[in-house]
């Protein structure tokens, strides 16, 4: 399962697609559970988000039963994952 490539400027990868697949959950379902729009979750999933609110992170961790470290990972820029 490939994680989303981080955009330029930071080295944070978002593993939302992997967590969704592991839990058999769709993006729309997750959006309804955490109260964030599908568009915003899609931005997060595709690695186009510039920042994540702690409240959103809390809701995501609750809904996916995971830790922030499961959702986010740091990969130094230019280094293949």
């Amino acid at each position: 399962m490939s994680s989303t490539e981080p955009p330029e400027g930071h080295g944070i990868e978002v593993h939302l697609d992997r967590l969704l697949a592991e839990r058999g959950m769709t993006l729309t379902e997750l959006a309804q559970r955490v109260g964030v729009t599908t568009v915003n979750l899609s931005i997060l999933k595709n690695g186009r988000a510039k920042a994540v609110r702690f409240t959103t992170l809390t809701s995501l961790c609750e809904a996916l039963d995971c830790q922030p470290g499961d959702l986010l990972a740091y990969r130094p820029e230019g280094r293949p994952g």
């Binding site: 915003n40 979750l41 186009r48 988000a49 510039k50 920042a51 959103t56």
Partner: peptide, 8 residues
């Protein structure tokens, strides 16, 4: 504004 729009 750009940062805010990129905040989830």
């Amino acid at each position: 504004r750009e940062d805010l729009e990129g905040t989830v």
